[in-house]
Design a protein around this nucleic acid. Structure first.
Lengths: 152, 152
DNA sequence: GCCAAGTATATGAGCGTTCAACTAAAATGG
DNA sequence: CCATTTTAGTTGAACGCTCATATACTTGGC
């Protein structure tokens, strides 16, 4: 198959390990904060945010999955849980009877509003506060480059 | 508590969302590759690598947890699974009878050796190949900065 | 030496995620 | 129109992770 592995050199290895450590640190801090203070994982937060930003606070499941960056299955399970909490409800789609909308409820919006300040603080604390403005710019371009890989 | 939230401005929000998308993309690709081709999650891979690099291929559980960046509980569960597969075994620590060593077996080393090329290829494909050398350098510094946050 | 406090690790329940079916409804195209 | 393929979404089992708790040993004061 692969004729010869392009191993990582010492610098690349250091970079990769720093990447793993850094990202896990950020996500760890984030998840702990959200779970502790708002009782939800980051995935749920992203789903609620995505819904809250769309007109009518409603979105088709598949589009929601795309925008909130999660698989359809994950979304389906997540929305089921969010429904149990009364934060989201499903509505059938009139145009396409296979489809359904996820709709953010008032209670869901309130839960999001309550969670947001702590979450944003944590994002700052764990990421932006430790970087210089140039680093933030560089990070943005790096992430955009990585992100574009899949969107082609 | 927090008197006034330091919300993210438009640029920061874009950066944050790119960060989430990019990191999830990288980890997603990585986990899928490892699971598909080597039947293990990234956590297990890191544990095996860490053990393989230490003299005697053995390490105390708590040190292993630190170096492989995972919680003690996670490590304990993971090592239990790795033991079932015959990739790692536990040995009691003579100096401290509470403690134990995790030891990489031959089979474990072989499994790691078989998994490594595909994994490294995937790391390149999803991260290094899409970045310029300058971006890689910048990423390293950014991640080092984030990482140092907790090690103080 | 003894008791309290701390340390090293294990364990189990609960939960989220993945993967592989599965259902049902649209689109496609003869 | 009917048959095939595609698309939208759900479901359940398997599994890893987190959190709280438990166990067993060690250490530090007295």
């Amino acid at each position: 198959m692969a004729p010869m592995t392009r191993w990582l050199d010492a610098d690349e290895q250091r970079t990769w390990r720093n990447f793993v450590a850094a990202t896990q640190h950020v996500y760890g801090a984030l998840d702990r904060q959200l779970q502790r203070d708002a009782g939800m994982p980051h995935t749920y937060y992203m789903i609620l945010v995505t819904l809250s930003e769309t007109p009518g606070r409603r979105m088709r499941m598949s589009e929601l999955a795309g925008r909130a960056q999660c698989s359809q299955s994950r979304l389906s399970h997540a929305v089921a849980r969010l429904e149990e909490r009364g934060w989201v409800r499903r509505e059938p789609c009139p145009d396409d009877r296979r489809g359904s909308f996820a709709v953010l409820t008032e209670a869901g919006f309130d839960a999001l509003a309550a969670a947001a300040p702590g979450h944003v603080e944590e994002v700052r604390r764990s990421l932006f506060d430790v970087l210089s403005p140039e680093q933030v710019r560089a990070l943005n371009e790096i992430c955009a480059a990585v992100r574009n890989t899949l969107e082609r």
